[in-house]
Design a binder for these strands. Sequence first.
DNA 1: CGCAAAGTTGAAACCATTCAACGCCCGTGG
DNA 2: CCACGGGCGTTGAATGGTTTCAACTTTGCG
Lengths: 234, 234
Amino acid sequence: MEKPTVTMNKSLRVNSRDKAVLVRAPFMAGLSGEALVKMLNAASISSAPARHIVFREGMTAEHFYCVLSGYVRLYRLNREGREADIRICGPGDTFAECLIYGDDIYRFNAQTAENTTLARFDIRTARHLAEQEPDIARALISCLSHHLLTTMDCVANDRLHTAPQRVAEYLLKACPVDGGPASIRLPFQKSLLAGMLGLAPEALSRAFSSLRRAGVTVRGRIIQISDVKSLRDV
Amino acid sequence: MEKPTVTMNKSLRVNSRDKAVLVRAPFMAGLSGEALVKMLNAASISSAPARHIVFREGMTAEHFYCVLSGYVRLYRLNREGREADIRICGPGDTFAECLIYGDDIYRFNAQTAENTTLARFDIRTARHLAEQEPDIARALISCLSHHLLTTMDCVANDRLHTAPQRVAEYLLKACPVDGGPASIRLPFQKSLLAGMLGLAPEALSRAFSSLRRAGVTVRGRIIQISDVKSLRDV
DNA sequence: CGCAAAGTTGAAACCATTCAACGCCCGTGG
DNA sequence: CCACGGGCGTTGAATGGTTTCAACTTTGCG
């Protein structure tokens, strides 16, 4: 039983349900038997209530994480205390794995946005495993590459698109279909979506109402799109 | 002699001078003899004039690159043709290495900002090498991690800081000293710095002139800072 | 010297933030 | 049952930062 530096509600071994999510996470998917077992053994599960601080910027980085359920907000503060989200991590997403080499200090804050279950990996252990098992190294490379591309997308979006365009883009990505009408249920609160798109909650609200003329109707977390194609023109 | 998909001025084997830069690049530094030789053999050098398109978004990704001299702009276009820079790569920087696993399509445009020498690696070859040589995998992980952190910094900066703050931050990072007066010579054009910070050239100009009251004097590419400490308060 | 590219400055328009007020939903407790 | 209150979301008005466009100046290079 290790003591985590940041206390959580519970800290327990992997149960079968969490394991199922973990094994399907992009980071673990594609690991062979041996490597998979090693990683699973290195994992420990913890769950935390909403708004729990997982770690703070500047803290010594000892673990990286994989979200099993719920959502985690990665963000940074400016000197006046204003927060800016960098990334929102949902089930299957890994975060702070980028500290596996290099500085041993967290470079941002991580806070749960709702009740959340996390898998936690010791960074040193994972580093050793990555050096022993080529498959684990490969998984790490693949996972980091994907994050990097996503984050570059984020920079480009912030710099190229207006608020309604970013919202439209999110909706289109979340849309299962490629034409006609569609309906989406947001998996989290609107304030979280706002942060994800680099907007104040008010700006998201205004973006939604400006998308009404493009056939977007919002009622709570349910979003109706009358015509996916016309949304693409925004 | 392979034919590159994008024609460059010259395409030649590694010469001793380029090799020296390449070996010192973060990506190659820390490679052992065997791994180093393999990577060097996989590299081919090409140089291109200013404003040369290295590759375009959507093209089949066959190579990734390491800048040996000069600068490369990674950017994306919106539908109206406006450009937004995602990253500026200088000597020692690697780009498009994030495509080593995953889709085989470039996700952004790359253009030289001045006369530039590049090392080019075949992506498939590099993938095989990374699977054979744990050191190469380790170097890739380390390199990708660093990029990811940098890009996350970029998102946070864009969202948290104003133009003068971003400029001040750049100057402080480029500053060798931590107090008193300092002088910096920009390694590239101001328009490139503007793009790097997510600003229009005019906005950079205004930011500089608003930093005059913080003791910043600009003459061409030379920037004088009367007191580094007071710049930190911006 | 002269031209073209790069950089600066001003004015106007635009976009997003901020602050404040209000409405809504929902859980709690009387 | 209803009243209350808090969290969340929406709306309005004012503010501020950045872009855009255009004109002008400066720089660098042949």
